[in-house]
Every structure is written in C-alpha cells, then in structure tokens.
Computed example of a mutant assay.
Amino acid sequence: MSIKLDAISTIFERLRKAGYHIVGSHSAVKKCHWTHVALTQRRFCYKCKFYGIASHRCLQMTPAVIWCWLRCLHCWRAEPGDLEVQWDDTKLPVVDDPEFIVEKSIEEQRKIISGYKGHPKVDPKMWEEAMNPKHAAISLSGEPTLYPRLSELIEEYHKRGMTTFLVTHGVRPDVLAQLDPEPTQLYLSLEAWDEKSFKEFNRPILPGLWKAVIQSLELLPSFSSPTVIRITLVKGFNDHEKALEGLAKLVQKGYPTYVEVKAYMNVGYSRYRLTKENMPKHYEVRAFAEKLAEKIGYEVVDEQVSSRVVLLSRIDKPIRVGEGCPGGNAGGELPEGSEAEMANQ
C-alpha cells in the first residue's frame, strides 16, 4: 500500500506543477483556459455558444483525477507508462465524502479566480460572478463513474444551484443506470467504431469494456436530461469511411439529443503518444460532421472554429441549460493554433 501511496503522492505533485488543484484523496480542479479568456477578453467557449454555459462561471473538475479503465492514446491524463511511477488506476484508494469534494472544489476555484481581482482587463462584476460558479464540468481527467458516490456528488452541486455536465467513456453502464439525480447533460465520448479499434486506440485494461460501452449507448435514450455523443476526430485513425460508417451505427444506437464532432488536440500527456499531425483542421471536422449528419438524419446546427467543433442535433434548437454569457463574443474566434483553441476538450 505504501508503494502505491508514494506513487500517487509523486503524480499529485507533478499535477500541481501543471496547474491542478488537488482536492482530498482523488479529486481535482483546474482552470480552463476559456475561463481566463472569458474574464480578460470576453470571449466564451463553445459550451456558451451551444448551451448557454457561462465560461467564467464554469468549474472544471474530476472526482477521479488519475483513475481510469482506459489508456486512450489521445488522453491528456498522465497514465502509468508515461511517467516513472506506477499506481493501480482501476479503483480509488479511498472514497471522499461528496459534500466535502463539492465544497473544496468551489473553494479551490475561488482561489484560482481570486488572482483576477483588480486585473485591468477584468470587469469587476464578471469577477464577482466568477467567484460564485454556476456550472460544474465533471470532465477534467480520469473516469468519473469510478467514484462510487457520483449521484450524491451531482446532487450536491445541484443543491447549490449549479448545473452539471458529466463526461464518461461509458465503461460503467451499471453506474449510469443508477444515476439519481441525472446530470444536467450527459456526455458519452467515442473515438472507436468497433471492438478492434477500441482495443487499439482506447487500450482497455480490463476485459469486456467494449460490451460495457455498447450497454451505455443503449442506456442513453432512457435519460430525461439531454445526452451527447462526443466524437473526437483523430486524423489518421478515425477520419475514414469505415470509421464513419461504424460511428454512425453507434450514434443511431444511442440516439442522443446531440452529437459533437471535435478535433483531437495535441496537449498534455497525449503528446507522448500522438503528434500534431493527428489534429484535423476545422474544415476537416466540418466535412466529417456533415457526412455523419447525412447518415444519421441529424442537422448541423452550430459550430465553433476556434475549438474545431461542430454540433449536430435531432431537435430544432439546442436547449439552453445555462444563463448565457454577459455581452462579449459567445464563441469568439481565436487564431488557429492559439492555446485557447486547445482548451476545453
């Protein structure tokens, strides 16, 4: 046990140096670059443009910062093998109380935002708003469904008047089936189109996980909250016709409210596994999304070039679950290659 704890302590220290604020034994908060851009430039991420989520009031967190059952090639999470330390990333070493995690995550977010007070480019009113986050993106790193008290965590954020977006790879359909309350919006991430490509790219560390992903897809229609299938497009891996056909069938199985087709970005520890050549341009994302939309009968309803993302929908107009962003440029464009376009994956 001490060896595992020493390894976790080592990786936590590296994460802190990378800007992660560790919360308790297994959770973390990290400032999204779009939070900085929203405060200093009044430009907002695609979640504002699509769904009304105010970027400066968005808390990006995870209840399982280094724990996951997949070792995806495109993930910016530090994985055993990336570093000279090893740990058991199949289960949390302990289970922290959800109320503690929520309180501490908000506290850490306020510490992050406090440094913007008095900044010449930051509107004091926006700073005050940012000090009271209204949205929790449970998506920073790791697999959140490995936290066994996930429903309670979501409930604690909702008690504080916050919305929640939960992002999963679908490896725990048992957890998804029992979520109560549901998140404000549920994301299921896909890159692979069949079991062979799943094993090649997502590199599961336990058996039977492709079957679990299929079961999670089949659960999506049972959710009353909006659901999203997020397809990360990786040039040279899933940007071809066979992948398109396979992904279309998976989307039809899940019948989500929306599909987001988004470019892979060469950031974090993914730089050890993939290269910048694996990042598609926005026009390539758009072309793939249009072909996918035609196959599944969805409409292309929005896009944001700076994040290289295209939104497909089976309903006429996306549901605005947030309060929107104050003035400025919702979905404001930034130069290609800027740090901001790589943020908020």
Rank of each mutant, 00 (worst) to 15 (best):
K4S: 13
K4R: 14
L5H: 12
A7G: 06
A7H: 09
I8F: 10
S9G: 12
S9A: 14
I11S: 02
I11L: 02
E13G: 12
E13R: 13
R14P: 03
R14T: 08
K17T: 01
A18S: 13
G19Q: 07
I22M: 03
I22F: 01
V23E: 00
S25D: 04
S25C: 08
S27W: 06
A28K: 07
A28M: 09
K30G: 00
K30R: 15
K30C: 04
K31F: 11
K31L: 15
K31G: 13
C32K: 08
C32G: 14
H33Y: 13
W34V: 01
T35M: 09
T35H: 08
H36M: 06
V37K: 09
V37H: 03
L39R: 12
T40W: 01
Q41H: 11
R42A: 12
R42M: 07
R42V: 05
R43Q: 15
R43A: 13
F44P: 07
F44D: 08
C45W: 07
Y46Q: 12
C48D: 14
K49I: 05
F50S: 07
Y51C: 02
Y51W: 14
Y51V: 03
Y51F: 15
I53Y: 03
I53Q: 02
A54L: 04
S55I: 08
R57N: 10
R57V: 09
C58I: 08
M61F: 10
A64M: 10
V65I: 14
V65R: 11
V65N: 10
I66E: 02
W67T: 04
C68M: 12
C72L: 05
